[in-house]
Structures are given as structure tokens and as C-alpha cells.
């Protein structure tokens, strides 16, 4: 016999994400889902952010990778609280993994939780983790047509961090073109040009973090 089902395949993840959203709201926590290709500088950007803001904001970090605890160690060295999720080859984090990681990490006494997703511009964008905003890093060594090739992730993001901007003299990357394409799929997108390694341009990103945390707290 034929049974009409009509059920969303991602319903279990979406339900888990909604529960997370409520937990995060109870803690007044700003939660960011940080995404990018592998090697665009997610962890370096985190290290710089956590170090620079160490005295002002309390960060928790969930590190997603296919293998190794390397990134959690790098992040923990800044003094932030960090746990590692290994997906063992999985291409994205889902809400159940994040739920478990939150229990390990503990959400008390934190201001901002950053979830560093698995390096990938496709799959992570499809799985909600209960975050307040998706933040996507694009580095200038990757090619300025990435927003054109992977429009979905940029359409879902609140912020695009254009990283490794200090390498512009050495690579053929048109920042205006990359930004124009990204804004074409997402007119509301905020774009910050940064060089995480040197710290160039990071103040605008920090100001955005403070503003967003304040907005989240006021909305409580």
C-alpha cells in the first residue's frame, strides 16, 4: 500500500535546533555559526578575536572537524572555554552534535558561543544549529567568484568576513566583485575586510560582535 508522508527530511535537525535556540535564549547567549572553506582562516580568526577581546567578553567555542583535537587546543590556549567535536568524516555539524557539545562545555558564565563548523561551503549551510547568525569567511586566496559558485551559504549569512586582505598585492582577487556578488544574493549582508593574522580591520568585526550581543540581551 501507498502511504502519503509529506514530512521534511530535516525535521529532526530543525526540532533539535529549535530546542537549542531556546536554551541559548535562556542563557542570554549570542551564538554564531562560523563557516568557510578549509584553510580560509577560521581558527586563526578565532584565536585573534578571543585574544583581543579576552578582557571584555567571555567566549565559549565548539570546534567541529573531521579529525583531531588540534583546533580546540589552539583555541583553549587563548584562555577561552573550548570543546572539540570530531565528525569522523562527516561534512557538517548537526543540532544533536552541538547539543552534546554544549553539555560538555557548559553554557554558564559565557557571553558569546562560537561554533566553528566543518570547513565546507555547501553542507553546513543546510543544517541549523539554533544560532543567532551565520558568519562566513571568504579568504582572498580562494577566488572572488566563490559567492557566485556557492550562493546559498552567502544568502544565509549575516556577515561575510573577507580574510587575508593583506595578501591582495599577490593574488588576483577583486574585492569589489566578490562583495557585489555576495550582496546580490543577500542585500543585508555585512562585509568586513580583515587580516586575522596581523589584526588589520578587526575592530569593525569586534564592534559588530558587541552590537549583536547587546541586541540579543535587550531582546530578552
Amino acid at each position: 500500500m501507498q502511504v502519503e508522508v509529506a514530512r521534511n527530511i530535516l525535521e529532526a535537525n530543525d526540532a533539535g535546533a529549535e530546542e537549542l535556540r531556546q536554551i541559548f535564549a535562556r542563557h542570554g547567549l549570542l551564538v554564531l555559526n562560523l563557516m568557510s572553506s578549509p584553510g580560509s582562516g577560521k581558527t586563526t580568526l578565532l584565536e585573534r578575536t578571543l585574544t583581543d577581546l579576552r578582557e571584555q567578553l567571555r567566549f565559549g567555542v565548539i570546534e567541529g572537524d573531521c579529525q583531531t583535537e588540534n583546533d580546540a587546543r589552539r583555541v583553549a590556549a587563548t584562555g577561552a572555554r573550548a570543546v572539540q567535536i570530531n565528525t569522523h568524516g562527516g561534512c557538517h555539524l548537526d543540532s544533536a552534535m552541538v547539543r552534546e557539545a554544549c553539555e560538555q562545555l557548559g553554557l554558564e558564565d559565557l557571553d558569546i558561543l562560537i561554533i566553528e563548523n566543518v570547513g565546507n561551503l555547501v553542507c553546513p549551510a543546510e543544517f541549523s544549529l539554533g544560532e543567532d547568525a551565520k558568519v562566513t569567511i571568504l579568504s582572498v586566496t580562494e577566488g572572488d567568484d566563490k559567492p557566485e559558485k556557492y550562493p546559498f551559504i552567502f544568502s544565509q549569512s549575516r556577515v561575510m568576513l573577507l580574510n587575508k586582505i593583506d595578501l591582495l598585492p599577490y593574488v588576483p582577487f577583486d574585492t569589489a566583485r566578490a562583495s557585489a556578488f555576495a550582496r546580490a544574493v543577500n542585500p543585508e549582508l555585512e562585509i568586513f575586510e580583515v587580516a586575522a593574522l596581523s589584526g588589520h580591520g578587526m575592530d569593525a568585526w569586534y564592534a559588530w560582535l558587541r552590537k549583536s550581543l547587546e541586541a540579543k540581551r535587550t531582546a530578552r
Binding site: V5, I9, C91, D94, C123, E126
Partner: peptide
């Protein structure tokens, strides 16, 4: 390539629907 986890979701729903309708 998140098809494996999509299929996990599919199988969970399929099993639920089959149980609901007594199908094996």
C-alpha cells in the same frame, strides 16, 4: 555530500510511518 545524514533522517521517518500503519 551530506546525503548519508539525509538518509538517516529519511530512514527514521520511514520506520515511524511503517510502524504507525503496521507495515513490515
Amino acid at each position: 555530500m551530506h546525503e548519508l545524514s539525509l538518509v538517516e533522517g529519511i530512514l527514521a521517518i520511514v520506520r515511524e510511518e511503517m510502524a504507525k500503519h503496521g507495515l513490515t
